[in-house]
Amino acid sequence: MIDKGAPLLALDKVETRIGPYHILHGVDLVVPEGGATMLLGRNGAGKTTTARTVMALWRASAGTVTFGGRDITREDAPTIARLGVGYVPENMGIFSDLTVAENLRLAAISGQLDPKRLEVIFNAFPAMKRFWLGRAGTLSGGQKQMLSIARAIVEPRRLLIIDEPTKGLAPAIIANMIGVFRDLKATGVTILMIEQNFALARAIGDTVAVMEDGRIVHHGGMAELADDDALQRRLLGLSMSAHQ
């Protein structure tokens, strides 16, 4: 982190097609190292597709994805994960047949759980400790989300891609999550988060990118966007900040 602000992840004119549908029409996105970048936009704008394209779960049909200076456009998902990218998908991707412990153990690619990191996780999400040997499928929605995030941070990562972590969660849990993400940021990890909840985005984000129709239509500091009601309205629709 000597060169704070140099891009850790960069997408250059990325296009993605899913079957007959053309979803991303040339996404240019830069995620600086350190700090949190929030990816905002309406439903269907292509945010999740962008995240999945970075993870190589869907293939870019054009353009390049660079991670830490390395072209990863043609790499497969396992390689990208092993470069130090933790991924929390929109649907959480919990293995419900496995216990909480097994979910975390599998997430540690080294095969070993680091007790210190585990302690951090237990502090952030006490439920993980409480339900350690419970089947993940029996957890509540919020707990599943916590488990999904816990899996992503069970080992040191360079980049966390988190897709809508607050979807469908109660406000009290969201407040707790904000604290967790802030602590995470303090450890120096870079975060790329897709979020619809503007309050949370404002509380965590350093930079922000807004998507529309498969393109990035705005790129800049979080603070500017937060202070500019007119810009918010134009980019995100009327309801966004008025809502919170």
Binding site: M55, L57, D76, A77, P78, A81, R82, Y87, P89, G93, F95, S96, D97, L98, E102, R105, L106, A107, I109, R151
Partner: peptide
């Protein structure tokens, strides 16, 4: 563990580095 996880959600297992 990998097999059981993969049976349920192969994509996530890949995205976790396997």
């Amino acid at each position: 563990l990998m097999i059981r996880a993969g049976v349920e959600n192969r994509e996530m297992l890949e995205a976790m580095g396997y």
